[in-house]
Design a protein around this nucleic acid. Structure first.
Lengths: 111, 111
DNA sequence: AAAATATATCGCAAAATTACGATGAATTAG
DNA sequence: CTAATTCATCGTAATTTTGCGATATATTTT
């Protein structure tokens, strides 16, 4: 439903899920990869790079902004987007931590 | 819409997005954390741990199975689920690689 | 064989996601 | 000041996600 029962899960679980969700779309991954590649903060060039309408790209940017991965600054009539290094590293750590805990179960004892 | 225009994105982008999507729910993160903690492959104990109906848990398990993170083996009347170490490490690597590329943009040059 | 247990799947409803065109707001150019 | 550019937001439609109860299937127990 989407009535996602947040209350019953820990903040850590909810947060990690939200961060994963922000990345869970090819277009948003493409946006991030593009921003990573061209360090120069791109704005609406993204619309030309992506196979999506301007309004759709704007929506994806909004999603990434909401989680904090992106921040935008006004650059004349245009807007300059770039990755927030702090948030980026924070998310990176969260995922690393999550994926780190697989030591025991080395395809021998289980299933 | 969900009419996600897969065609226009690379396989890498689509795959990473799908993997992120599989993790993008508190319940599924809780499932994975539980399986990571109790190395003994749990089955329907998950239903008791999670604040969700049996059918709902089964659906989440299906999602994780579809991406390959989980595999299940029949254990009498019950079914034993556990994390597939190979897939797990593969996803771990994919995320690590994705998050690795933030060297230049150290909160100085951009936004 | 019948009852109990464990899971999966079906059918449904509510909500969220994705996408687009159209419109609005702000800035720059003429 | 007006026209053009850039981006965000609105309204809408198709699809997907999430969740539950009910039901189906398989296994074990009695």
């Amino acid at each position: 439903m989407g009535v996602s029962k947040k209350e019953h899960f820990t903040n850590e679980q909810t947060t990690l899920a939200e961060q994963a969700k922000a990345i869970a779309h090819p277009a948003r991954i493409a946006i991030l990869q593009h921003l990573l590649k061209t360090k120069t903060c791109i704005c609406g060039d993204l619309v030309e790079v992506l196979p999506l309408a301007q309004s759709t790209v704007s929506q994806h940017l909004k999603v990434l902004k909401k989680v904090g991965i992106l921040k935008g600054s006004i650059e004349g009539a245009a807007i300059c987007y770039c990755i927030d290094p702090v948030v980026w590293k924070s998310i990176k750590s969260a995922f690393q931590e999550f994926f780190a805990d697989l030591n025991e179960c080395n395809n021998s004892n289980c299933c």
